[in-house]
């Protein structure tokens, strides 16, 4: 049984609001960069960058990181056949970086992403933008920009579908036997 919590309009509005908040908080686009976390964070980062461009007339650079080899639970989750190259096509030095991911849950993905990011250089500041915050944090991590807070139980699963992956935009909550995202 799945319940839709955001449709495509909802997602578009949420991302536009996040774009506004980013611009406002960072006084514009100067020194700003977005880094999406593979897989869903990357198209979201691109969409936010496009939204910022519409607001400010300048599009911040967008990078991508794969955090598979940084996860502290790699041994538990096991090796994956699907890994993407990380690509940070700009110097991180003195940058204000907004990490972008689809769902914030335990915080472990973000911790791994911070580790990965630091290996590419030393940013001036790192902020976090997520489309969904579903709670249940296991680490002291919080998002600076949240599209929508969605209270969930651990047994539930949050599914994000994006047009870039050949589906229509939507966010679903479903009951799943194994409750991790």
């Amino acid at each position: 049984m799945a319940v839709e919590v955001l449709d495509s309009d909802g997602i578009r509005r949420a991302l536009t609001r996040i774009a506004h908040e980013i611009v406002e908080r960072n006084d514009g686009v100067k020194g700003l960069a977005l880094v999406g976390i593979h897989t869903c964070g990357v198209p979201l980062a691109r969409r936010i960058a496009e939204a910022i461009a519409r607001i400010e007339g300048t599009e911040p650079p967008v990078g991508a990181i794969d955090i598979t080899l940084y996860r502290d639970d790699a041994g538990r989750l096991g090796a994956t056949a699907h890994m993407e190259p990380s690509d940070i096509p700009f110097d991180l030095q003195e940058r204000k970086v907004v990490l972008v991911d689809d769902v914030l849950y335990t915080g472990r993905t973000i911790r791994a992403a911070l580790d990965a990011l630091i290996d590419f250089g030393r940013p001036a500041a790192v902020q976090l933008a997520v489309l969904i915050d579903r709670g249940h944090r296991e680490l002291p991590i919080r998002a600076d920009y949240v599209g929508k807070n969605v209270p969930t139980s651990r047994s539930q699963k949050v599914r994000v579908e994006l047009g870039e992956h050949g589906e229509r935009d939507a966010v679903w909550i479903e009951e799943a036997a194994n409750g991790t995202r």
């Binding site: 790699a74 580790d115 630091i118 290996d119 590419f120």
Partner: peptide
């Protein structure tokens, strides 16, 4: 790409 990073080390 790892060999092009500043820190060429992954914790995996």
């Amino acid at each position: 790409e790892v060999s092009r990073r500043e820190v060429k080390k992954l914790p995996a």
